[in-house]
Amino acid sequence: MNIFRLAGDLSHLAAIIILLLKIWKTRSCAGISGKSQILFALVFTTRYLDLLTSFISLYNTFMKVVYIGCAYATVYLIYMKFKATYDGNHDTFRVEFLVVPVGGLAFLVNHDFSPLEILWTFSIYLESVAILPQLFLISKTGEAETITTHYLFCLGVYRALYLFNWIWRFYFEGFFDMIAIVAGVVQTILYCDFFYLYVTKVLKGKKLSLPA
């Protein structure tokens, strides 16, 4: 555990909680892609199956359980409790275009051809693109609520911090995981355009709206 890793995990946790609280407090999931949230629930489910097979640390187990629990709670709020506020007309990204190729790639490029390892690899690849339906929704509506942009910012910072974590681990532990690193770089790049808008608009007190 290093400072980048811990800060990354906490940033990830902050993102998840910001989104849950936003939906809960406003009693609305307008502007939120339910499809991205389903993908994240799928990511956590397939990645953390090792909860059942190996114990790493209390911290590790606790965070995994919280991430999974929050992911399903978010999906529940969007598709059940506050379904009436769900922006289904704009949330039209075709997720099969992500899930199918990512599933195929996980079968082809993995560390070990075993069920748990393939599912872990699938979750890593899927996470790297799971935000696309959300970014697609924002590009369709042309705007995002400020709280939604804070959520996205924390989520992007989490992955960027993990890149520093991997640099740290490479230098000080000789550890590197090519699958995680390549997927992590892809994931971080997807946020770059958003980071730019966040810094130039949201941090200056403006609402994030895209030019028509």
Binding site: D50, S54, Y67, L116, E117, W120, D177
Partner: peptide, 10 residues
């Protein structure tokens, strides 16, 4: 067998 070291990350 698999090197489980990458599984200590979230």
């Amino acid at each position: 067998s698999t090197d489980p070291s990458h599984h200590d990350e979230l």
